[in-house]
């Protein structure tokens, strides 16, 4: 596994982070080193081992699917970089 410039660029794009050529030169070797270091996990035999996703092993509780707050539109948009009449404003996405 090698993390070349094209791979760094691709990962950054998937993560929606703009990277410059300088950034690619900076992160590339670090990502390469970290991924090479985690390769040691390949030594561990995990045949038949169930992945552990919920460590507390307490079943997640469900709640009724009902509105339990409401009338907090102003709270919700309060921190928006741009909001108009209760809506979040973004650039035009449909031509």
């Amino acid at each position: 596994m090698t993390i070349d410039a094209a791979t760094v660029k691709k990962i950054a794009q998937l993560a929606r982070i703009r990277v410059s050529d300088e950034d690619i030169n900076y992160y590339g070797p670090q990502l390469q080193n970290i991924l090479a270091w985690v390769e040691q996990l390949g030594e561990v035999n995990t045949d038949g081992v169930e992945p552990l996703a919920n460590v507390s092993e307490i079943p997640l509780s469900l709640r009724a699917d009902v509105v339990n707050d409401g009338n907090i539109q102003q709270d919700i948009i309060k921190n928006a970089p741009e909001a108009v009449e209760g809506f979040f404003v973004v650039s035009k996405i449909v031509e």
Binding site: Q13, R16, I17, R18, I76, I77, N79, A80, P81, E82, F88, V90, S91, K92, I93
Partner: peptide, 19 residues
């Protein structure tokens, strides 16, 4: 993502704004 809270750095379209 610069839409609902936090910093926003405006780009020429939404994808660029995210990045």
């Amino acid at each position: 993502d610069g839409v609902r809270y936090g910093l926003r750095k405006e780009g020429k379209d939404l994808a660029e704004t995210y990045e």
